[in-house]
């Protein structure tokens, strides 16, 4: 399959060594994108209340966490034990596993910026894209969205509310991109040359340790373009060839090791290169 090339490629470099796992990004993401809090009973649906409980948030396979923070550890015993936190948005792959499998073109990668779209009114909810994505970046609406009474007054204008039965995922807060382009036009800036920080997703903005750097990977003036080339940078599951637009970086070798599978013996070159240089 061909990889589509774009002039702008929005991407992230997430410095794992700076993520403390606080959760602010996940909360901001949910608030920005109108993801309803997980409540177990729908007071307006008596039949549902009588027959079934909606999900408990500790069932992590039923959440709608577009951005999910994984906890990694080095597997060593006390006191050498170490932990790291890895926030996982949608990777916006250059060669996405999810896009070609969708039977109804409800997800596509064809817009300048390289963000993989998800068209909720088109999605039939077959979940084939979820089966295809090895990052588990895609989420299914198992229930109708439900806010505690009154809380839907605080809905964000930036994301339409999805009905049950469709798949959704991180889109780098796409509405913010649209608004940034509009703002740029008003201010006489070329929307194809947005300055760094002109458009940032909610998680990037919220992160108190600045662990997520966001920008145009193709624009040498943007920090991400340089950081992505750092010897400490890597991408998740690079061997699969999905060409993600999200990079990670860590000075810890064990963290970089866990970015890909090496059971068959080889180690990816990024890990080797960096460990030779620094360890």
């Amino acid at each position: 399959m061909q990889v589509k090339e774009f002039k702008i490629k929005w991407g992230m470099v997430i410095d794992i060594d700076k993520c403390s796992g606080c959760g602010a990004c996940m909360v901001s993401c949910q608030v920005e994108n109108n993801i309803a809090p997980m409540t177990q009973e729908d007071p307006h649906n008596h039949l549902q209340m009588m027959t079934t409980k909606r999900d408990d948030p500790s069932n992590k396979l039923r959440t709608l966490t577009w951005l999910n923070v994984y906890e990694l550890n080095n597997g060593k015993a006390f006191p050498e034990h170490d932990v790291a936190y890895l926030p996982r948005p949608c990777m916006q792959c250059g060669h996405p596993a999810c896009v070609p499998v969708c039977p109804v073109v409800a997800t596509d990668k064809n817009e300048e910026g390289g963000i993989v779209s998800q068209i909720y009114p088109r999605c039939i909810g077959c979940r084939y894209c979820m089966a295809a994505c090895p990052y588990h970046a895609r989420y299914f609406n198992w229930w109708d969205p439900l806010w505690p009474d009154g809380m839907d007054k605080t809905l964000s204008p930036n994301a339409s509310v999805r009905p049950r039965g469709v798949v959704e995922k991180c889109n780098f807060c796409h509405t913010r991109y649209m608004k940034a382009k509009d703002r740029a036009r008003e201010e006489g800036i070329d929307p194809m040359e947005l300055p760094e920080g002109y458009y940032v997703p909610a998680c990037v903005e919220a992160c108190p340790t600045g662990a997520i750097v966001f920008g145009d990977l193709n624009n040498p003036e943007h920090k991400v373009a340089q950081l992505a080339k750092s010897p400490h940078s890597f991408r998740l599951l690079e061997k699969l060839g999905l060409d993600p637009q999200v990079y990670y970086m860590s000075k810890r070798e064990w963290v970089r090791e866990q970015g890909d599978n090496h059971a068959a013996g080889d180690h990816n070159s990024a890990v080797k290169q960096a460990s030779q240089g620094h360890e």
Partner: peptide
């Protein structure tokens, strides 16, 4: 129940969509 409440009724989840 599945049509009325949604397929949340089943034991499927985001890992086991199939």
């Amino acid at each position: 129940l599945i049509f009325y409440n949604g397929i949340g009724v089943t034991a499927m989840d985001n890992y086991f969509g199939f």
